[in-house]
Design a protein around this nucleic acid. Structure first.
Lengths: 155, 155
DNA sequence: TCTGGGACTGATAACGATTCTCACCCTCGG
DNA sequence: CCGAGGGTGAGAATCGTTATCAGTCCCAGA
């Protein structure tokens, strides 16, 4: 269990829990124990998790429910689905619940970790992206930046 | 981008064809007509293509051969596999056969188009990425930058 | 508190993109 | 011209993901 920044005791962090609850309510959905467990599991890594990793973190979760609830949480905007190069989809809490960040994808073991650019770089990048997209008549919602390489464990 | 200069009779543009041939030879693989057709098909769009799009471009290709040959071409380094948000994998010619670029991914229709950042932005980004990765003990091979939003057709 | 209905769950079946299998073809060296 | 691999194509098999469905739980109203 590695809550990124704050060291706290509650399963999913009270702030995030509240946020998720709100998002679910807004869509007439309930925040059940299974969903709370799922959100807590997603927080336990320092990067996006695969279904199997989630099931591994919390054995009390049923596979079909995990798939279904991840779908719900994604529609609600609490969770983001990520596809890397390998065959498994990965999920993580949405950015507005955490912080803007990017991914370090290890092409050897397939693991994904988070990292962030410093603010000035991030904003000038953002500006450049919007400019580039505009000339193509493309309306940007978000950007996604991944680094491919080998992680410390594999290197 | 498509064959930049001369319009020729050969399916895939002589320069790229030669490059691919070399890559295949290096791995003791042949550059058969089916593979040439495949490479030509990949050049026909201005972005990565799905298997179905490829089959659509050239009806003479067999699905299983397309899958197999894309795998071969990927191992050889002539083709890159890309996974977006939707359920289909997409393939495009490797960067050293074309130019460094990024992707505009339409979250509405799922289509993918290419775009490039200007050089100064690209290199300062690259530098920032390496710096960020170094502090995590991560060795960067490449980066991948996608813009998510709606394309002109869907907007 | 009781009750009804709708949301949620979990086991299982179905789905579908991708991969594997295998018999046949084609190409290249001798 | 022949033989040995690599390539091909049609279909079967794989496996992550989705859909189904009966049973359970939770909330609102009586």
């Amino acid at each position: 269990m590695t809550a990124p920044t704050h060291a706290d005791e509650t399963p999913a962090g009270p702030d995030i829990d509240d946020e998720v609850l709100l998002l679910l309510r807004r869509a007439d959905q309930r925040y059940t124990t299974g969903r709370r467990r799922l959100v807590a599991a997603l927080q336990s890594g320092d990067g996006p998790l695969t279904i199997n990793q989630i099931l591994d973190v919390d054995r009390s979760l049923a596979q079909s429910s995990v798939y279904r609830n991840l779908m719900v949480l994604e529609q609600v905007g609490a969770v983001v689905r990520i596809v890397t190069r390998d065959e498994f989809a990965r999920y993580e809490l949405a950015e507005h619940l955490t912080e803007h960040h990017h991914h370090l994808i290890c092409t050897s073991c397939g693991d994904v970790a988070d990292f962030a650019l410093d603010d000035s770089m991030e904003s000038s990048l953002d500006e450049a992206l919007h400019k580039a997209a505009d000339t193509r008549g493309f309306a940007v919602d978000a950007h996604r930046l991944d680094l491919l390489g080998t992680c410390g464990d594999c290197g």
